[in-house]
Design a protein around this nucleic acid. Structure first.
Lengths: 332, 332
DNA sequence: CTGTTAGCGCGTTCAG
DNA sequence: CTGAACGCGCTAACAG
C-alpha cells in the first residue's frame, strides 16, 4: 500500500500545473502534443491511478447500487442477484449487497447503511416481516428505489414482479384439467403482496371451473420449517385431505413432502405437489413436484436494475413504473 | 431526490458558521449547550444527513469491501458470502460483490473495477481459469487482498481455507474401513490448489492402507456438466468400475448419479457417492451421498473478512497469514 | 496552449 | 465558546 500518488506530485515533478496534468490525462485537445505525451508517460511509469473517491465526491456519484433482499443463500434470490450484477456491470456500476433476513429492523438498518455509504440507488426485495413501509419513503428522498419480486406497489416506486395471480390461475386450471379436485394452497405470509395475488388466482380458477372453495385448504405460512410442518399436518388431518398441494416455493414443498413420507404417503401417487419456483436441484429429485412456475428471477433482477439505472441517469424524464414479467408454467 | 442539504445551509439558516454546525453535530464539548441544541434540532427537522462521499474522501476510506468469487448462485459461495456480509456489517462495512464466472478476464476486470470504485480491501475466491496471478500482485499495491476457499498461497496474501488433504484422507479412510476398495476420484480442475491437495489425501490414504493406486480412477473435471458426464462414463466403462466415487462437490455427484441411473445402476447399492460439500438440499434426496465433508463456508468467509479488516484497520501490525478451518466428515 | 482560481462537503487547526 | 481558513484530489470556468 503505497503513499498515494496524486496529480499534484506528477505536476510538481514535471514543473507544470495540476490542471494541465488533469487535462493531459484526459487527452484534452487544447493541450500540446508533447506535453500530453510527457505527462502520460510519467503517469504510466509511476502507475498513476486517479483517486476514485475524489472523483465520486466531485461528481456526487459513487457508481454503487445497493441491493437489499431477504436471503442471498436462497437460490431464487441469488439468481436475481446474478441478473442484477450482470446488468449493472455492463453499465459500469457495482453492487452492494445486504440481507434483511426477512426482518424489519435489519431492512431498515440496511437501507440507511447503504445511503450513508453513498449508493446512487437501491434495489429492494422486501422482507416478509415488513409491515411499516415509511422507511422507503424516507430513503427515496435521498436516492431512487426500485422494488423487485417482493414489491411495494405505489406510484412513487418503480417495481418489477411476476404476474402471480395469472400463474396461480394457470396452475390450478392445469390441475383441474388433469382431473384433480382437492387442491390445497400452502401460501406465503400475509405481509407479501404475492400471497394475496396467489390466493386470488387460486380462488378465481376454482370458481371459473365451478368448484367449491374450501377455506380449510388455504394455509398461510411464516416461512419457518416448523410452521410448514404444522400446516401440512393440519391439511393431512382433514376429513378429506388434498390430493395436490400448491406450495409457495420449492423448499416449502420439500419440507411438506418429508412429512408426507413420514406419514407413509407416496409422493406423486397418494399426494402431489406443484410449486412457485423452479429451482435447479429439483430436477435431481426422484419425485419432483409435478409442475412448477418459472418466474425468471434473473430477468426480474436485470429489469429492475435497468429501471433503476434509468432513474439515476435520466432523473428528469424518469417516471416510476411497474414492469410485469410473465411467469411460465412448467409441467414435468 | 432533494437538492442536497449541507452543513453550509443549516449554518446560514441559523446565522452561525459551518464549523460550529460541524462541532455541534458531533456534540463537541466546547460548544454552548443551547447552540448545540439549536443546531441539532434544525438538523433533525430538515433530515440532515452528512454526505458520506465527502467524508470518505477526507478519510480516504469508503467502508466498502470488494468480494470476487466464481458464482454467487452456487450455494457454497452464497453461504460464504452470507458469512462475509454478517461479519462486515458488524463492523460498519458494506460488501460489493462481483462474479468471475471462473473466467480469468472477468476476474481481472472485477478487481480493477473494485479498485476504481474505491473499496478498502478485497476478498477473493479464485476463478478456476486463473493461471496468471500477476493481477493480484498489482492490486495489492493499492489495497489489501485476502483469499478464501480458492486461495493463492503466497506470503504476500492472507488466506483462509479448509484442510482438503486431511478431509480427503479421512474420507477415503472411512470408505476403506467400511470395506470399499475400488474408490474413484472425480476431482476439480488442475488450476485449483485444492485439486492437488484432494488427490494427495486420496493417494495418501490408499497408500496408508496398502491399497494400489489406480490412475484410471482419478479424473480431473473442468466443472462443466458435459465433462462430468464424459468422465463418469469413462469410469463406468472400466473393466472394474469403482464402487464408490469421491466427488468434488454435490452438483458433480448429482450429475454423475444421473448417468449411473440411466445406465441402470442403483445409487447407494451398485454404486455410492461421497462429496466435498454439504449442501442443504441433499438431505431431501431419496439416495443422498452416503458421506460428505462439511467445509463451513460461512465460517471461511467470516474469518477471511476478519483478517481483511485487520489488514485495513491495523496496517502497521498486520502480517498476512493463513487460517485453516478443519473440515468435518459427515456420515449420513 | 497553459496557469490560476474556485469549489465540491466536511473536519480540524489556528486564532480570537 | 466560536469563527475563519485550510486541505483532501480532482475538474472546470476563467484568464491570460
Amino acid at each position: 500500500m503505497h503513499a498515494s500518488l496524486t496529480m499534484k506530485k506528477i505536476a510538481k515533478e514535471l514543473g507544470v500545473s495540476v490542471s494541465t496534468v488533469s487535462r493531459a490525462l484526459q487527452n484534452h485537445p487544447r493541450i500540446g502534443a508533447q506535453t500530453t505525451e510527457k505527462v502520460q508517460k510519467l503517469a504510466r511509469e509511476l502507475h498513476y491511478e486517479p483517486n476514485s473517491r475524489a472523483i465520486n465526491f466531485k461528481n456526487k456519484k459513487s457508481y454503487n447500487i445497493g441491493v437489499v433482499l431477504p436471503y442471498l443463500t436462497e437460490q431464487y434470490f441469488s439468481i436475481a442477484l446474478s441478473g442484477i450484477e450482470e446488468t449493472l456491470a455492463g453499465k459500469g456500476y457495482n453492487m452492494v449487497v445486504m440481507q434483511s433476513r426477512n426482518d424489519y429492523e435489519r431492512e431498515l438498518a440496511a437501507i440507511s447503511s447503504l445511503i450513508r455509504h453513498g449508493v446512487d440507488g437501491i434495489l429492494v426485495s422486501m422482507a416478509s416481516e415488513t409491515y411499516n413501509k415509511s422507511h422507503f419513503n424516507d430513503a427515496t428522498h435521498k436516492v431512487p428505489i426500485v422494488f423487485f419480486d417482493r414489491v411495494l406497489k405505489h406510484p412513487k416506486y418503480g417495481a418489477v414482479y411476476g404476474d402471480i395471480t395469472k400463474a396461480a390461475f394457470d396452475m390450478v386450471q392445469f390441475l383441474i384439467t388433469k382431473g384433480h379436485q382437492n387442491i390445497a394452497l400452502l401460501n406465503g405470509p400475509n405481509s407479501l403482496q404475492a400471497t394475496t395475488e396467489r390466493e386470488k388466482g387460486y380462488i378465481d380458477a376454482l370458481r371459473y371451473h365451478s368448484l367449491a372453495i374450501n377455506q380449510q385448504y388455504i394455509k398461510n405460512l411464516n416461512l419457518t420449517k416448523e410452521d410448514t410442518i404444522l400446516k401440512i399436518n393440519e391439511l393431512l388431518n382433514l376429513a378429506t385431505p388434498p390430493e395436490v398441494i400448491l406450495a409457495f416455493h420449492d423448499y416449502i414443498a420439500l419440507d411438506a413432502m418429508e412429512v408426507c413420507k413420514q406419514r407413509g404417503l407416496k409422493i406423486n401417487q397418494d399426494i402431489s405437489f406443484v410449486t412457485f419456483s423452479n429451482l435447479s436441484f429439483c430436477s435431481y429429485l426422484d419425485n419432483p413436484p409435478i409442475a412448477t412456475v418459472e418466474q425468471f428471477p434473473g430477468e426480474l433482477g436485470s429489469q429492475a436494475a435497468r429501471l433503476l439505472l434509468e432513474a439515476i441517469e435520466q432523473p428528469e424524464t424518469y417516471v416510476p413504473r411497474e414492469i410485469v414479467i410473465e411467469p411460465k408454467l412448467i409441467v414435468r
